[in-house]
Amino acid sequence: MSRDAKTIATWYVDPDAEDHMSDGHAPIWRHLIDLILERDLSEKSVLDFGCNQGGLLRHLYAIRPFRKALGIDIAEQSIAKAEAFKGNIPVQHTVGQSLEGWIEEFDLAISHEVVYLVKDIDAHAADIFKALKPGGVYYAVTGCHTDNPLWPKWRELVAKRTNTVVQDRSITDYARAFANAGFEVSGRKLEYGGFIPFVEDGWTPDFADALEYYTGTKTVFRLVKRRNAS
């Protein structure tokens, strides 16, 4: 697969912030893995779109070992670290965002807080659809949408603190794009049930905002490519 022309070094302007990001995401990843309905992945091929430093795939393999996986991300230094951290798990990492050449390759695809940065969501939905096998499932997770009451502040922070370009979309915008690509679309709130740490980092002005975000705002789409899809 050819590399995309548009890549970045790291997601965050401050590289240290990116190194610490996986610590905060780890409990959320484990909760997400528990929500995935596909229990036995031992013979399955998995895609992590926007894998960053590969932490989600490492957590997934530790809990539900898969046959093989691909992690793809536009951040070059992040992919280098993902490769360094992966150990002996059967994962390939690549720099880019296009899945050209990966046709009906994956049984399961996951993205966590990535789709809100994808410029062309219709093209992304079509890309994932083609990359999944018939019957394959894509779990796309984001709380970064215009239905989030914190979004006006967050889009400023994302623009300031990261090397990415923010996109404004509602939950319905995402659902419609995936449906138009041919997916059977359903969704739910993340409803994280663990304890949420009190952290004053600018993202949630009040602790109540953090509690509401992880239980009520953050959304999990479950997108199924029907077996009879053309």
Rank of each mutant, 00 (worst) to 15 (best):
S2H: 11
S2K: 14
R3C: 06
I8T: 07
A9L: 15
A9G: 09
W11T: 03
W11C: 04
V13Q: 14
D16A: 13
A17G: 12
E18N: 13
D23I: 12
D23V: 12
D23Y: 07
R30Q: 10
H31R: 03
I36E: 04
L37A: 14
L41G: 10
L41I: 12
F49N: 06
N52K: 09
G55F: 12
G55S: 14
L56S: 03
L57V: 05
R58T: 07
I63H: 10
P65C: 10
P65L: 12
L70T: 01
D73P: 03
D73I: 00
I74W: 01
A75E: 03
E76W: 05
S78Q: 11
A80S: 11
K81G: 01
K81C: 02
A82F: 10
F85Y: 15
G87P: 10
P90K: 09
V91G: 09
Q92K: 14
H93S: 08
Q97R: 05
L99A: 06
G101D: 07
W102V: 04
A109G: 02
I110Y: 13
H112G: 05
E113Y: 03
E113N: 12
V114G: 04
V115L: 09
V118T: 05
D120C: 03
A126I: 05
A126S: 14
D127R: 13
D127Q: 15
K130F: 07
K130D: 14
K133R: 13
P134F: 01
V137G: 07
Y138I: 04
Y139K: 04
A140M: 03
T142I: 02
T146L: 03
L150R: 08
W151M: 03
P152K: 00
W154N: 02
W154K: 02
R155S: 08
R155W: 02
V158F: 15
A159Y: 01
R161Q: 06
N163P: 01
N163D: 02
T164P: 00
T164Q: 13
V165S: 06
T172I: 11
Y174E: 01
F178Y: 15
A181K: 10
A181E: 08
G182N: 11
G182T: 06
E184T: 14
E184F: 09
E184W: 06
V185W: 01
R188S: 13
K189F: 05
E191K: 13
Y192T: 11
G193C: 08
V199H: 00
V199K: 03
G202C: 00
F207S: 01
A210P: 08
E212A: 13
T215Q: 15
T215M: 10
